[in-house]
Amino acid sequence: MKFGVVVNEGPYTHQASDSAYQFTKAALAKGHEITRVFFYHDGVNNGTRLTVPPQDDRNIQKNWTELGKEHDLDLVVCIAAAQRRGILDENEAKRQGKDADNIAEGFRISGLGQLIEAGIMSDRLVTFGD
């Protein structure tokens, strides 16, 4: 079965991203397909490579990047939400005249249409948030 996953909260403050990660892993382990993981609202903050959590804690961004690499996941950060919160890739940084970008490996920035498309493409859309 095809699952789309939506993450609406940032890392660490709220459990949403951790829950989404565990769910995604469990779905993959059962042989399901993950069509896309879409990060919206503060969820876009999962996609910055600049976080430095304590060594004895999990690194949520890295967890997603590694799971993404292992299973070829489409990790999409919403552009409208990302712009508000300062999550940029190289192109966006250039376009907006900013001096840096911070998108993490394996994530890409794209439009809200990708969320609707995930709903259309997937048999189930599962949302994690506050």
Partner: peptide, 19 residues
């Protein structure tokens, strides 16, 4: 909170998908 506004943004974008 921003949820209501960002939900409406999804609705407006989603309208183009003819669902």
């Amino acid at each position: 909170t921003i949820y209501a506004l960002e939900a409406l943004e999804v609705v407006l974008i989603g309208a183009a998908f003819d669902q």
